[in-house]
Design a binder for these strands. Structure first.
Lengths: 140, 140, 140, 140
DNA sequence: GTGGTCTAGACCACC
DNA sequence: GTGGTCTAGACCACG
């Protein structure tokens, strides 16, 4: 469990939720893995058990974990988890591109800069754009 | 001025700020245009003058407007405005792509889907990716 | 607001939620009516503001109210509310009838007894059974 | 013995109780049949013997089984069992109808829909209501 | 004034 | 041991 950023404006319980969700997306936490107990995690994060409890309740509500009373919280094997996340990302990015379009920022410039940054992080964005670009379909 | 969405979780003053910023980006509000007075806008939005005041203060802090005592608030002709916005968008999108990469979603799929959606909205995303993909500028 | 039954095994916050939901179903609370403030209701019920807060959060999550920060909670004008409730009731009752069937209790007996009880409460169940039973069997 | 649903919010011991009760209602378990031993059932359900013990204690308290020291637990031949269950069901259904009435849902609609569903499951709900309506058996 | 979050500490049911 | 609920009291952002 990563540490909490007390500088962050987001509430602590929300940060906990986010942390666990990414851990699941990344496969660090897998189906039926046991979550740390409310109390122990509270100790580890030096926060209040109620706060952790709230985070777990939220995770359960969103379908990421399930609770066995008296035993603990466990990761739910949610097959559609990935698809949801993918759609979420697609929506978010599309929305941003649309916004750029609205205020007249040329998409070319955006994409160019983004690609530069991604590749400087070692992310092979080119393959993607490549496929996009390919067969010369769009050479204006 | 568009209406405020009271069901939105974001604070009202922030919605006002956002509204004005997009109006400036879109060119609806231009340099040295006069902003509506605090009181009149508060009336129009049927909200508290304090709230409008807070929004204007925030806009001034961010360098989007300037105040002339006794006369009112005016739009600042900020040449770097666009660049800031562009950078903001680039950062946001890059961040999202990075996240996708982190959890193992193939960027290809994302870009493909996004492209589909943009073009279905009449936004010519293809030209952008094209230029990217072509001249091989960023391949290494 | 009805009183809380501290004998009831259900948690207090859940009782509060239920109370408000029925008040909405009955039309006592209508769209955009303001809910009592968290603190005042807590006082009235002589319970803790946190408990009321939890109830309100749940009501918001379920789409029955919306929150305007700094102003209060308000009833959401949910048109599909009634339909949801109706379906819920139908499901519950059907489930019970199915259970009876499963363990071999003749449905006739059940319906007979239920009808007796409903009419003794002044509920005109007969009209309903009428349609069911068709052609004018019951002109009493 | 059916399996336990650990994702179910109800406590495990309660699920065990329910399971046995329906088995008795359905006649799968009959008077003086021996119940599985606490330990073996605990193994079978891979749960804690304490939990099974608690379930058996509850079943005994409710008059469904009796204990012979050193021999085991046995099903009680309780003639009033069925009547209790019937009353329970009648109460539950009546309560739901009353609730519907309270919030102004026309009982006709409810009954109509329920009838549709029951018959689509092959349960002859119609005959029941029919008998009700016809020979006037329950009219007074 | 409003709601939202958090802490500290308690009690309960369940396993 | 586990999670779930509740209290008392605090602090913050928002209007």
């Amino acid at each position: 469990m990563n540490l909490i950023d007390y500088q962050d404006s987001r509430p602590i319980y929300e940060q906990i939720v986010e942390n666990f969700k990414t851990q699941m997306y990344k496969g660090i936490l897998q189906a039926d893995d046991q979550m740390p107990s409310v109390r122990s995690l509270a100790m580890e994060l030096s926060t209040n058990p109620n706060t952790v409890q709230k985070a777990y309740a939220e995770l359960e509500r969103q379908g990421f974990i399930y609770t066995v009373k008296g035993r603990g919280n466990f990761v739910k094997g949610n097959t559609s988890m990935m698809d949801n996340k993918k759609n979420e990302l697609i929506n978010a990015i599309t929305e941003l591109f649309k916004e750029a379009q609205d205020i007249g920022i040329p998409i070319d410039e955006l994409v160019g800069e983004i690609k530069k940054r991604l590749s400087s992080m070692g992310i092979v964005a080119c393959t993607a754009s490549d496929k996009l670009g390919k067969e010369g379909g769009y050479h204006d």
